[in-house]
């Protein structure tokens, strides 16, 4: 191959204008002339690229490892079934909890029927009960008011002390 052709092809190559066939031509040329002085950079690069083309996966048992993994993934479906069982177990647990809460609730309602019965059926008794409850609230309210009154007394006293003018002794000290 004449050097003019290589020169032209290389120029096209650097400008990314070569076809795959032309690039193959260059590869073949530099394989035959690996230490070309004239095109030192291109020779080094094509040598490097040829070396790269020959690289293989560094594991002679790669295929077996992959097919084995694929087989395991196949069995993965059983794992998914196991996951289903797990979900069912959790669901059963939740069901037991809900049933227990419901049954306990029922039991509680059964043991305290008087609360539910209340006084609704007898208006007089209901009135009495309401009166009793309101009286209790009012009693407690009054008690609270008395306590608040005490606090007010304290506040008034504090205000008086604050508003009193300073004595001459205190003025000297200041």
């Amino acid at each position: 191959m004449d050097s003019e052709r290589i020169e032209t092809l290389l120029e096209k190559y650097w400008n990314a204008e070569t076809s795959l066939d032309e690039e193959n031509e260059l590869h073949l040329f530099f394989q035959a002339h690996p230490a070309s002085e004239k095109w030192n950079e291109a020779a080094a690069l094509f040598r490097y690229l040829s070396n790269e083309k020959n690289k293989t996966i560094p594991d002679p048992f790669f295929d077996q490892a992959v097919t084995k993994q694929i087989g395991q993934r196949h069995k993965g479906k059983t794992i998914r079934m196991r996951n289903g069982f797990q979900i069912m177990r959790i669901a059963a647990g939740i069901l037991v909890m809900v049933a227990a809460v419901y049954l306990i609730g029922m039991e509680v309602r059964k043991t305290s029927p008087q609360e539910r019965a209340d006084t609704e059926t007898d208006p007089q008794l209901a009135f009495e009960e309401t009166k009793k409850a309101l009286l209790m609230i009012s009693r407690n309210f009054n008690k609270a008011q008395q306590e608040v009154g005490k606090i007010n007394l304290l506040n008034e006293a504090e205000q008086k002390i604050r508003n009193r003018p300073a004595t001459p002794e205190q003025e000297i000290k200041d």
Binding site: Y13, N40, E41
Partner: peptide
């Protein structure tokens, strides 16, 4: 992208060549 890559490689190779490739 190919044009830029090849040109960068070429420029760097020329520089490397100056120090002995």
């Amino acid at each position: 992208n190919l044009f830029r890559a090849r040109n960068t490689v070429r420029e760097k190779l020329i520089k490397l060549n100056a120090y002995g490739l």
